[in-house]
Computed example of a mutant assay.
Amino acid sequence: MKKGILLALFISAGFSALMAQSNKNRGRIPVYKTPSNSSSVNNSYQRGQVPQRTIRYNSFEPSVNISIGYGLPSVDEKRMADFFGANRGNASQNGTWMGSIDYRFSRSTSLGVMVTHSNVSAPYYINSGANYGDAYVNGQQKNTAVMINMVNYFGNTNGAVNPYLRTAAGVNIWDQTYTEVANGKPMDYVTEPGKFAYQASLGAQIKLSKNAGLFLEAGYGKYIAAGGLTFSF
């Protein structure tokens, strides 16, 4: 899985370079001028003479983009521990909350940092014996992930709807407790989930004004779907 995510990041970087060159070429606007030595409409283009052409480019200004949103469902639920002889009950969750700050240095690419946070809790029930169905353990797992975030824009980057591909990779920071119901003692032998964090999503920004808008995403990693607000400065 790690190799696949890293490969996706390299592919994304290459795709970004190709899109930057493509957008550069699309930004050229030919403007034709009448030759300076022409004296009338009738002799504007003399035989063998090529009209002068001036090329100008659409302006691009780098920007800092800030996004704040909420993602569902929290994939961190799948990282909760399993206990022999016990079934996990329905989990409750708060999050995933997400936020990112990126520097958009070209039409097609921005690079920055993404942070997510989620809180998942679930009871565990004894699945056999005389105490079948009794609560055995209460579990709670908090996760904060810090990831390098790359966003590749494509399509009409100046339009009201701006589609993009997000790829992010970094580290998980876990805080988990599993407490035995009978005596209230925390269990200290639960292993920590993996430290590698990632997110890959397809999304779109929807402009509401020059500097503010909405975003919607669908993907996998820290969340399946997310939405929120985005700001550009």
Rank of each mutant, 00 (worst) to 15 (best):
K3W: 00
I11E: 00
I11F: 15
S16T: 09
N23E: 11
K24V: 08
N25E: 14
R26C: 00
G27I: 01
I29F: 04
I29L: 09
V31I: 14
K33P: 02
N37I: 09
S39N: 05
S39R: 01
N42P: 03
Y45T: 14
R56D: 13
E61S: 12
N65L: 10
P73I: 06
F83G: 01
F83A: 06
G85V: 07
A86V: 07
A91P: 03
T96H: 01
G99D: 06
R104Q: 15
R107I: 03
S108W: 03
G112Y: 10
Y124V: 10
N127S: 14
S128N: 13
S128G: 08
A130C: 01
G133A: 11
A135D: 05
N138K: 11
N138I: 03
Q141D: 03
T144K: 09
A145E: 06
M147D: 03
M150W: 03
F154V: 08
G155A: 00
G159V: 04
Y164V: 04
A169E: 00
N172S: 07
T177E: 14
A182P: 08
K185A: 15
D188A: 11
Y189R: 08
V190Q: 04
P193G: 09
G194T: 15
K195T: 15
S201N: 13
G203Q: 09
Q205W: 04
I206V: 12
N211Q: 13
F215C: 09
L216T: 10
A218N: 09
G219Y: 00
G221L: 04
K222D: 13
I224M: 11
A225I: 15
A226D: 02
G228A: 12
L229T: 07
L229E: 09
F233P: 00
